[in-house]
Design a protein around this nucleic acid. Sequence first.
RNA 1: GCGGAAGUGGCGGAAUUGGUAGACGCGCAGGAUUCAGGAUCCUGUGCCCGAGAGGGUGUGGGGGUUCGACUCCCCCCUUCCGCACCA
Length: 854
Amino acid sequence: MSSYDHQRIESKWQERWEAEGTFVATEDPSRPKFYALCMFPYPSGSGLHVGHPESYTAIDIVARYKRMNGFCVLNPIGFDSFGLPAERAAQRENRHPAEITRENIAYFRKQLKKLGFSFNWEREISTCEVDYYRWTQWIFLKLHERGLAYLAEVPVNWCPAQGTVLANEEVVDGRYIETGDPVERRNMSQWMLKITAYAQRLLDDLEGLDWPEGVLEMQRQWIGRSEGAEVRFAIAGHDEGFVVYTTRPDTLFGATYCVLAPEHPLVASITTEAQRGAVDAYVQRAAHRSEMDRQLAAEKEKTGVFTGAFAINPVNGEQIPVWVADYVLMTYGTGAIMAVPAHDERDHAFAKKFGLEIRPVYQMDRDHDFSESAWPGEGTAIGSGAFDGMSVAELKPAIIDWLEAHKHGEGKVNYKLRDWLFSRQRYWGEPFPIVHTADGQVVPLPTSELPVVLPHVDAYKPTDDGRPPLARADASWLQTTLDGQPVTRETNTMPQWAGSCWYYLRYTDPHNQDLPFSPEAIQYWGDVDLYIGGVEHAVLHLLYARFWHKVLYDAGLVPTPEPFRKLFNQGMILAYAYRDSSGRYHHPDTVEQRPGQTSILVSAWSQESVQTDWYVKDSDTPVEQKLGKMGKSLNNSVDPLDVVERYGADTLRMYEMFMGPLEQVKPWQTSGCDGIHRFLRRTWRLFVDEQGALRPFGQTSDEVRRALHVAIKETTAGIESLKLNTPISRMMELVNACKGSLPAREDCEAFVLILSPYAPHLAEELWELLGHDTSLADQPWPEHDEAALTTSIVTIAVQVNGKLRARIEVGADATKEAVLAAARAEPNVERYLEGKQIRKEIVVPGRLVNLVVG
RNA sequence: GCGGAAGUGGCGGAAUUGGUAGACGCGCAGGAUUCAGGAUCCUGUGCCCGAGAGGGUGUGGGGGUUCGACUCCCCCCUUCCGCACCA
């Protein structure tokens, strides 16, 4: 009882907060709201590691601080629980993924609760539970109703061995990243969401979001808006023609050939007999390579084949050859381009390789060797008929006008953003609320038919004839009726993104049985005020969620056009991994550093000889140290529960913040907890004597008072701006300043309050010892006293010619003359002034004096 | 290649935004205390010279602006993270 017993204190307060409902979110219309949100975790089988609590701790500090500032705080938590890993585990262990997922969630919950977060546990959600996913289905119906969900034949990554489509990021070098099975491209009927209809708004509304610049830029690039024109080319000897998209219609007179993507529908019909063999072979080869594969190969050299056909340039009637090449993508623009080798680097590389004409249509001030490289920049138009003499900026609109007037094309805005492939041939996801009629109609179910519950299946794998796992369900599920007609259920499921697209909305009203959330709840909580999560979600999750949010906004269901007002990315916490020369990984707890005892070993990473002074404990096996992501593969995970047991949750939370700026990538070092733990012990000792009794209070001193108010000021500013590391230093300085003296009661109380968001258990315990019988969670946040920050004596640096020569102590109110006199009187300053003339005297009040002599 | 972030002691990191570089902590060294300690307390700790006073030097490298630069400007190098034939 007399020493700092973190285990006793922490379980005591965790139980009390839960029993008293201290952090249950309330909706008090007379108070301002604050919605704090961390990206919810995927409940993996390996549990949380110490990297996860970083963002939760940051959010928790802000949430507790806002509460103490009078806000009604929403600080919810839940689980993103559909997804592949659970499905694979289910296949392996032959158990239902729901069972596995619930077990994983139970461990996550246990870990999270031991960390003392002020989460609104009464609002916990899990995206794989029917209570939740029925509303995901409900929102899908809204999208469908608004014409934003459709079935389409699209090229996908099909893995024959797995019998399913794979996401692009699961395919590398034409193989499935997990098993190495080959992947091919295939056209399949898939559910798509028309996110492209929102491209412009998704771009425009980035303006005004308080998000990291990097994330905004990534979203802009992903949406990829460009302005240009579509131009129609006729084909000599054919009735058909094709349309190209170009951002440089001003270079139309410089087009010396055209290129169609291998998948372009016109390729087969325009290819001449003489070229057919070569073109077919080329198209075949392209079809069997994944998009990523094609890109990798293309980095080395461009490939392509002449079709034998000629296109007619509408501006001058010239006939130019039409090629097929995979550097043109079917998925962007029209799948066809006009090539201007003189002014486009890619076209230039291609033209050079195949000996095609390079024709400049801009003249520059300086010489340029067009046979060597393209010139994509400014110039004065030449060889462009009536347009000669114009600049790029003048020619673009002029030629678009001409094209439109002559019906050869029109101005066009294009986006890289593509519609979202929204179906998966998986078991562990939301079933689509869709049925198919006997005559091939695709019909959405009425909301009264929701939920469509995941059926029982005999195996979590595709059927033998390659249909999705849900096709294994009994006829009683697969076959149903709609308006008396027999219908068959859709057997695709939704991707993992679906549940995370709107979970932040469900938190506002998680138990609603009639709606995904009530108008009142969303009106009160509104958008998320602070959203913290990893950069890995900078594009997809955040773009998808913004898209759904805008659809719901258009449907009048949410009050704001954007979901997340302020976004903050925490930096990943890395950990050192230790590997011996045989390639084996040793956990950080099993190795030690032996300074001065270096060994040479062959690195299992680089195969090169490296020096090290790290060894496996109780052995002479040298290991190489390297920083990496925390996880199973590097055997360097640290379980927060181990840290909690040894040091306590308060130490863990505080150390995570103390490591460095929140946004920075930082290496975890368990020994770093020692410093924080010592600080908390000293804090305890400051209040409690060896017998466990509260120490008597003393008189405040200027020094302690100043340290306290500096700490209050910096903690307040730090939490507001998410600079959560330096306030801890200020609190340490405060405790150091109290050394050997008994602080005043008033100062102690203020200190406990500012400590509480960081180390809530210890703070509550001390608050209670101070005689309070209610939680400090609702105490008003202390304000600093500006007057307390000043000192009566200040130390001033004295420089001569910018070099520090002495320090002097003067009264804070000393005049400039007095300071200068004192400075000049310093013996070590006099030495440097001797025989010299003072040319300039610079005095920065309270800081320094610089005497410039010459 | 394009875009973003960042380079400070043995280590994690501070620096009021142009004013004493290295706060705070880890580690290390010396000392005190303890039956013991992943315990506690005190002192020291950028590097070089010096017994000391003190001096020199120092924020990836090189220039520049300034009385004064980690901070502002120009050039270069390195690392990390996105994107990558988007016409």
